[in-house]
Every structure is written in structure tokens, then in C-alpha cells.
Nucleic acid binder design. Structure first.
Lengths: 168, 168
DNA sequence: GAATAATTATTCAAGCTTGAAATTTCATAC
DNA sequence: GTATGAAATTTCAAGCTTGAATAATTATTC
């Protein structure tokens, strides 16, 4: 676990100028992310008549053929329980997702993609990969590797609170 | 305008392995951004009983003492017109924002922070700066500079569509 | 096994977000 | 000045999001 981006005098006592610089980099990062997100959102809407939250849910279910419990799904996506309920409702109504009771636990529900749902998602995922590649394809492999390294540092940085992450 | 992160054979015809790597860096970037955003969101809620959208609106108005038209505000924040209407409504109800008619144009409305709104935002902004510094303070100045440079490349990358950005 | 606590999921109210439709006002052309 | 189109906002329906409250079931403890 090397940490080449970790600054020696680690957390939080920097000069005013550095504080400003940190704020600037955060705003830049937010802007760039929102830009990419908006692109994906619009393409999903125009080309597939769907939304990003639905895509995210389907992506999670796609990786678990056997299905996921509602609670597993919401924690995988890091969104609230009630949130997932609504999205799944609509996906079920559209025939993309199936709900099956969990044997031995009458509280839990297993949700998984239907065959139709899998087919739909496979198409969207392929397109999505290309969209992302159009945006990030301009970066050299070295640059993307560096970017991942920097982002890792941020993610595992102090000042958490929400969730107290630290996973992979 | 140097572009040290621009890859020679620029846009979009990369190998499957690079496509996957680009997808990976995007997901990482999204995750890190959401992590920071969630932190800020929760702190705003717990410490100031407010929301991120309200904070964003107030931040924009703070920078323009003379006020902004609704349309200027929504384009500055890159959100829809109808969106801003609702947020401003609540800020007005809370006495943080004032609406004044624009002389010579009965359609337009100028919105600006009240004295109370400015005071409130100043406190929040100071705290916000520290939160961000706690998270990004672990990066060296060189690293943040590099990050900004990479993010710039992404932002000015192909595959836009939404907005066709290209500003500062 | 009865009481208590923890888990799982849904419901709810409030707010955010969007794109589209409707309104009002302004600017331009004739 | 009247018509036509552009601009500034608001309204609207649909969906997303949250945290809190509720309900149902399961697990634990005595």
C-alpha cells in the first residue's frame, strides 16, 4: 500500500493560500464530474429513454446474476433504503427486474434482472463504455493511472463521517 | 495553452484494455466526488440545517452583491430554470434572499442575498473551506496542481453535447 | 416462551431536478 | 400600431433523494 500522493504534514493545517488551492481543486473536480455525468444522463435519456439512477441499479444487479437483497442493493449504491424501493418499483413495472422472496426470511426480498433487463442493460453498458471512452480517451495511460492514484488518496482521506468508508 | 495531458492519438479509438481503464478511472472519479459531496451535504445539514443546493445558490449570489437575474443564476449553476425558482422561493421565505424587479424589464427578476443571507453564508463558507481542506489537505501542492491540469483536459474533452461548455 | 432488541423493507413528507408547456413581456418587422 | 418571434419566468408532471417513522419479521436474552 504505497501512498505517493500523501503529503507529509498530512491533515488540515495548511496556509491560507493552500486552503484556497484545495477549494479550487475541489470545485474543479466537482465541475468535471458533473460535466461527465450530465453527458451520460442526456445520452441515456435520448438514446435509451432511461435515467442514470435506473442505469446504476441495473449495473449493480447485472454484476450479481443471483440477485441482491434490497438492503444489499442500497448499500452497494450508497443510497437510502427508501430510494431503491421506488426505482425498483418502476423497473419491475417495466419488466426489467423481478422480485423473489428469500427462503427462510419473510422480511427480505431478492431483486434481480429479468432476461429482458439483462439484454437491455448489456446494450446500454456497451454504449456507456464508448461515451466514457470518448471523454477519457484523450488521457494517456500514465495520466489515468496517476489520476486513479490521486483519487484514491482523496477517497481515503480524513474528514469522512458519512459511512466511514475504507473499503475497495 | 499547454496541454500536457492530451494524449497524442487523441479521441476515442483505443484498445479494449484502455477502454476498460477509462471506465475504471471514471467510476473512481465519480466515487471520490460523491464521497466529498456526501460529506459536505451532511455537514451542511447537521451544522447549519441547510442543503447543498441552497448553499450553491447562496454561493453564486454572494459573488454578485448587486444580484443576479433568475436566468443568470440558473445558467451560472448549470441547472434548469424551474429548479432555481423553487430554491429561491424557500430562501426568500427564510429571509435569506430578496427579489427586486428589474427597472425597464417587467419580465426579469433580480435576486440577491439579504444582509442576513450574507452573514449566514459567510459562516457556512468559512466552515466549508475547512471541511474541504481536511479532505484535500493530504495532497501536496504539486499533486493538486497536477489534478487540476488533468481535470481541465477532461472538461475540455470531446463527447460533450450538454451545454457545449468551453468556458473558464 | 416472553420480552427486548436488531434487521429488513416500505411509507411518508419535504425538497431537489429535469424537460416541456404556458405566461408574460419585450423587441422587431411590416 | 399590429403581428410575429424572442426572452424571462413560472408552472407542471414525473422521477430522484433523503432521513425519519412505521410495520413486519427474526434474533437474542432472560
Amino acid at each position: 500500500m504505497s501512498d505517493p500522493d500523501q503529503f507529509p504534514s498530512a491533515t488540515a493545517n495548511t496556509s491560507p493560500a493552500l486552503v484556497k488551492q484545495n477549494l479550487r481543486v475541489w470545485l474543479k473536480m466537482l465541475k468535471a464530474t458533473k460535466h461527465v455525468e450530465a453527458t451520460v444522463r442526456e445520452k441515456l435519456r435520448v438514446e435509451f429513454d432511461t435515467t442514470l439512477p435506473r442505469f446504476d441499479v441495473m449495473a449493480a444487479l447485472y454484476r450479481f446474476e443471483e440477485g441482491l437483497k434490497m438492503s444489499e442493493l442500497s448499500s452497494a449504491l450508497r443510497v437510502s433504503n427508501g430510494n431503491v424501493t421506488g426505482i425498483i418499483e418502476r423497473l419491475v413495472a417495466d419488466g426489467a427486474v423481478l422480485r423473489v422472496p428469500v427462503a427462510g426470511d419473510k422480511r427480505a426480498m431478492l431483486v434481480r434482472l429479468t432476461h429482458k433487463g439483462r439484454d437491455e442493460f448489456a446494450k446500454m453498458a456497451a454504449a456507456h463504455e464508448l461515451w466514457i471512452n470518448e471523454i477519457f480517451g484523450g488521457l494517456s495511460p500514465d495520466t489515468t493511472a496517476r489520476l486513479i492514484s490521486i483519487l484514491d488518496t482523496i477517497e481515503h482521506s480524513q474528514g469522512l463521517t458519512p459511512g466511514e468508508d475504507h473499503d475497495a
